[in-house]
Every structure is written in C-alpha cells, then in structure tokens.
Lab assay of single mutants.
Amino acid sequence: MDVFMKGLSKAKEGVVAAAEKTKQGVAEAAGKTKEGVLYVGSKTKEGVVHGVATVAEKTKEQVTNVGGAVVTGVTAVAQKTVEGAGSIAAATGFVKKDQLGKNEEGAPQEGILEDMPVDPDNEAYEMPSEEGYQDYEPEA
C-alpha cells in the first residue's frame, strides 16, 4: 500500500510541476504579447503594419512553449490582441483601416495563427491545408 501511495504522490508532483510550467509559459506569452502591443503603439504610420505582424510573430513563438489545451486559448487571445492593436492603430490615425491585415508588401496577414497546427491532446499534428499553395516548377 505504501508503494501505491508513494507512486500516487510522485504522479501528483509531476502534474503540479507540469501545471506550473504551463502557467509560466502562458505568463511569458502574455508578456511578449504586451511587449508587441507597446511596440505597435510606438510606431509611426509606416511601421504600424509591420508592428502588428511582430506582435503576432512574438506571440506565436511563445505559444510553442505552452502545451496542451492552453495553446488553443493563448492563440485565440493573441489573435484578438493583434486585431485590437490594429483597431487602436486605425482609431489613433497611425494607419488607414484599409491597410490593416496586410503586410508591407500588401499581402493579407489573416491566418497567421489560424494555420498553425495545434492539437490540445498532444496526440497528432496535421499540416495546414494546401489550398493556398501553388506547385513550383523550376525553369529549365
């Protein structure tokens, strides 16, 4: 019985440690998101679009440190934060509304985080759909 109880105690310690790591990862992701939003706020009209992409990228980098179902929630929060940063930029006159959601080359930025393969159960990952990809044929 002692062996059984000791095993359960060790398992509990492992769960607590994993929860603490997840909590730490979420806190880091939130900190990076805040950094990115402050970065966007300090940019001029020309830099705002690039700044919004930076927020998304920093958040995406930190999301990889967070495991399990938390990833889905962090990704949703990050996307809403990026959308909010863009709205703030438009409201303050840093950028025109028609410039939001495009990178410096004018290509749409939507789907940055949505296409990231995420499995809350950590069982399997699927690649994003290939609808947006084109076949590449090298020139002879």
Rank of each mutant, 00 (worst) to 15 (best):
K58R: 12
E130N: 12
K80T: 04
K45C: 10
D121E: 11
V66I: 15
V40F: 10
D98C: 14
G31N: 12
V37S: 01
Q24H: 12
E139A: 10
E35S: 07
P128M: 14
A76W: 14
V49C: 14
E46M: 13
V82I: 05
T75I: 07
V95H: 11
P120K: 08
V118Y: 10
E83T: 08
A56W: 14
P128N: 10
T75L: 14
P117T: 08
Y133V: 05
T92S: 10
A17G: 04
G73F: 08
A89Y: 10
K43M: 15
A69S: 05
L113S: 10
A19S: 02
T33K: 00
G106S: 13
G106M: 07
P117V: 12
K32L: 15
I88V: 04
A19F: 15
S87D: 09
G86C: 14
V3P: 00
T81L: 11
A107T: 08
G132A: 12
E61A: 06
A19D: 00
K97R: 13
N122P: 08
V118M: 08
Y136S: 14
E35H: 08
A124H: 07
E137R: 08
V82R: 04
G106F: 11
A140I: 06
T64C: 09
G93C: 03
M5L: 00
E139L: 05
A27V: 06
L113M: 05
G132C: 10
M1W: 00
G73I: 07
D119Q: 14
E104A: 13
K21G: 00
K6Q: 03
P117Y: 05
L38V: 08
E139S: 11
K43L: 14
E139P: 05
K21F: 15
G93E: 04
G41V: 12
D135M: 09
V49I: 11
V3I: 03
A69K: 09
K6I: 08
E20V: 03
E114F: 12
I88L: 10
K102V: 13
P108F: 07
P117F: 09
Q134C: 12
N103S: 08
A30E: 00
V40S: 00
G93A: 10
T75V: 15
E126I: 14
K34Y: 05
I88F: 03
K96H: 09
Q79T: 06
A90T: 14
K102I: 10
T81N: 02
Q109C: 07
P128T: 07
M1I: 00
M1F: 00
G84F: 14
E105R: 13
G93S: 06
T92K: 03
L100K: 05
K97S: 09
A11D: 01
K102E: 12
V66R: 04
E110K: 06
E57Q: 06
V48F: 04
F4D: 00
V15K: 00
G36T: 15
M1Y: 00
K45F: 14
L8V: 04
I112K: 04
K80V: 08
M5H: 00
K80Q: 06
E130A: 06
S129N: 04
D135T: 08
K58C: 06
K97H: 09
M127Y: 12
L113Y: 10
P117N: 09
T64Y: 10
V37P: 00
K102P: 15
G86R: 08
G93Y: 08
M1P: 00
E13A: 14
V15M: 14
V15E: 00
G7T: 13
G68F: 01
D119T: 10
Q79A: 08
K32E: 00
T81Q: 03
T54E: 03
I112E: 05
E139K: 09
A78F: 14
P128R: 10
K96Y: 14
A78L: 14
V16D: 01
K60M: 15
K102G: 03
V77W: 15
